[in-house]
């Protein structure tokens, strides 16, 4: 039990003194997962709008597939992306393996399903009358989608944040694509896995605390925004 107490004490010390290694790892994690979240949002929100706005054959099946992919194991995504960007794979010439950019690609692919699915759900929650009114007033499809997305912005925001949460906490893609290379592709989760394997529990606890702190900041921001504008 003393392990836990002393671990926490050392963890707090590492954080308060802004240990350069810890900070570098935390910043890299934020950089990668933020980038992936933004990329995924840029794809998921418009695509979700299109899916919501159109009735087409197999829409229900498509949504089921998307929802199933919510729980795709991160290592499976990691493996697939690895096979594509391996030097012997079709995208090998890009040299993305073991780079932060490759990790961004992997995390983007990982979180698109959950973001897309939740965006479609969020848009579904918007009053149907709004859409009908918009169209009857002569709005183009683009204007219609845009307005409905605006209407559902808080639900969409939480979809985006959930995507970010999945990205920053995953270890499969980061390990397989990034390779956990010190100073290059080592992020919070892979560093925790490594340090635990090396028996350095305090360092792991410190990184875990930072991960939780990031989650806390994100959630508090979300709540502030929602409370202010929902009222």
């Amino acid at each position: 039990m003393s392990d836990i107490a002393s671990g926490f004490a050392q963890a707090v010390n590492l954080i308060v003194t802004l240990n350069p290694e810890v900070m570098q790892i935390a910043l890299l994690s934020l950089y990668i997962s933020f980038s992936a979240t933004i990329l995924a949002a840029c794809i998921s929100i418009p695509l979700g709008g299109l899916i919501h706005f159109h009735e087409f054959h197999g829409k229900a099946a498509l949504l089921t597939i998307i929802q199933t992919l919510y729980s795709v194991p991160t290592v499976v995504v990691g493996l697939l992306i690895y096979l594509f960007i391996s030097r012997s794979g079709p995208l090998g010439f890009l040299g993305l393996l073991f780079t932060p950019e490759g990790m961004i690609l992997g995390q983007t692919v990982l979180i698109i399903p959950i973001m897309l699915g939740l965006v479609v759900t969020a848009l579904g929650g918007v009053d149907k009358n709004i859409r009908d009114t918009l169209l009857s007033l002569g709005a183009t499809e683009f204007q219609g989608i845009f307005q409905i997305i605006r209407e559902a912005r808080f639900a969409i925001l939480s979809a985006v944040i959930l995507g970010f949460g999945r990205a920053i906490s995953e270890v499969g893609v980061a390990m397989m694509i990034g390779g956990n290379i010190a100073g290059e592709t080592r992020v919070l989760t892979t560093a925790i896995a490594l340090q635990t394997g090396m028996g350095d529990f305090p360092f792991s606890i410190a990184l875990g605390l930072i991960l939780l702190a990031i989650a806390l900041v994100v959630v508090v921001c979300l709540n502030l925004v929602t409370r202010r504008y929902a009222a």
């Binding site: 910043l27 950089y31 933020f34 290059e184």
Partner: peptide
């Protein structure tokens, strides 16, 4: 995001 991006870039550049 930009700050994180930039700091991410600079840290990866300065560490080697």
């Amino acid at each position: 995001v930009l700050t994180v991006w930039i700091s991410g870039c600079t840290t990866t550049q300065t560490t080697p």
